[in-house]
């Protein structure tokens, strides 16, 4: 009988994902495509945001500290918690490389969207507001 040749079974190893330099620095996994725990760099606050903070009587970015530029269907977008949907960033806006700069743009756009008379909640408010 002919000897069976021992076929070498090629082991398919899963591609190892290297942790990013940011993950190494913070010693923590970034679970999503962007770091939801990234603290804002206050040197990068835009004049528009400074004016907003002043108008509201706050000391810092306040709720906007939790706003980051994310992605919807591969496109850059910011999440509007009031409308429970993603607001895509208009294509004509050039995005900088730094996540900190991108987050500031996202914050500005979100304020403009939420305070707009065209916001989807305006009609709901007209119909359902109690006081």
């Amino acid at each position: 009988m002919a000897k069976k040749k021992n076929k070498k079974i090629k082991k398919i190893s899963k591609p190892k994902e290297k942790e990013s330099s940011r993950e190494k620095m913070i010693g923590q996994h970034i679970g999503y495509r962007y770091d939801v725990n990234l603290l804002p760099d206050y040197k990068k606050v835009t004049p528009f945001l400074k004016k907003y903070i002043e108008q509201m009587g706050w000391d810092d970015l306040n709720w906007l500290e939790d706003v980051h530029m994310g992605y919807e269907e591969g496109r850059p977008a910011v999440f509007c918690r009031n409308a429970n949907g993603w607001v895509t960033i208009p294509k004509k806006i050039k995005l900088p490389d730094s996540q900190q700069d991108r987050d500031m743009i996202a914050r500005e756009l979100l304020i403009k969207f939420q305070m707009s008379p065209n916001h989807p909640l305006v009609d709901l408010k007209k119909a359902y507001k109690k006081f």
Binding site: G70, E72, G85, W86, V87, L109, F113, P120
Partner: peptide, 10 residues
């Protein structure tokens, strides 16, 4: 992620 695109209002 997928969702309702809000750009039309904005």
């Amino acid at each position: 992620l997928t969702g309702r695109t809000q750009q039309v209002f904005f």
